[in-house]
Design a protein around this nucleic acid. Structure first.
Ligand code: MN
Ligand code: MN
Ligand code: ZN
Ligand code: ZN
Lengths: 139, 139
DNA sequence: ATGCAGTTGCAAGTCATTTGCAACAAAAAT
DNA sequence: ATTTTTGTTGCAAATGACTTGCAACTGCAT
């Protein structure tokens, strides 16, 4: 885990991205993250460890990390962007419309069908997004 | 086509939505629409027929019509919302990342799989969105 | 240790969309 | 047809989520 982080910071530095105190902390926070927090939530989690950390720095860091492929940004309906590490394999999301909770899932079958559809229409997929807005089935 | 419009305005009036000159024109513009225009584009198309039409009225009308289920709003990546009539059957979209052009498609197979996935995880789908960001295959 | 290019906090700006408000106009009621 | 009621309009100002200019700072390669 320490070397994971080390490799990452090394790669970032190599790309001309400086690992400042605020970025190191944000990377730590993201590493500990199990959910899909937004910028304000990440700031809330990081600020105690870098007093004075500004929200613009959080936004700027998130953009830099996204650009480096370290994290992914998700723009769900009617909510600020939410983030997660990019290390895990591709998956799509279900959003509980009542709680905002995010559940991940993956369907190779669907991914296949998407690719086929695009191909048949003369396109290639650059990226896609598929979100299921759901509610808990009661009964 | 005249009675189509008539039935619609009747239904809207019944719901307490007044058919003002600006709304009548916007409904006409939407009826003629073959693409997925945004609010500014709709304003551009409608204003000549209602000189002085304000953009806020366009936004307010679009919200009202969406609420009444007359139109659908799509929030594609990094762009203002785009609209289309809601009369047609459900379909999803491919967005050409180079031109912004929107292509519609539908896969019953995918819809089925989505429903199954949600069910298996204990949820029911309220609505979903699936967008393929593509580029023309050259070759 | 040093220099410079990348980074920070803060204030101000941007963009798409929403909202308060007083004048106005559909549709209802008379 | 006129009045009354209540939804709607244009305009200006506000909102929310970010983004950006700038001068004071650091990382960090040398
Ligand atoms: Mn995820
Ligand atoms: Mn469509
Ligand atoms: Zn997917
Ligand atoms: Zn669909």
């Amino acid at each position: 885990m320490q070397d994971q982080t080390d490799r990452l910071t090394r790669a970032l530095r190599a790309a001309g991205v400086r690992i400042t105190r605020q970025r190191a902390v944000l990377l730590d926070v993201l590493a500990e993250t199990e959910d899909h927090p937004d910028a304000v939530e990440l700031h809330r989690r990081a600020e105690p460890r870098v007093p004075g950390l500004s929200l613009s720095t959080v936004y700027r860091t998130l953009s830099a990390l996204e650009e480096q492929g370290v994290i992914q940004r998700h723009q769900f309906e009617g909510a600020p962007a939410r983030f997660e590490r990019a290390e895990s394999a591709h998956h799509d999301h279900m959003i509980d419309v009542e709680t905002g909770e995010v559940v991940e899932f993956r369907s190779d079958r669907i991914e296949e069908l998407q690719a086929r559809i695009a191909t048949e229409l003369g396109y290639e997929i650059v990226h896609h997004r598929m979100e299921l807005y759901v509610r808990k089935r009661r009964g």
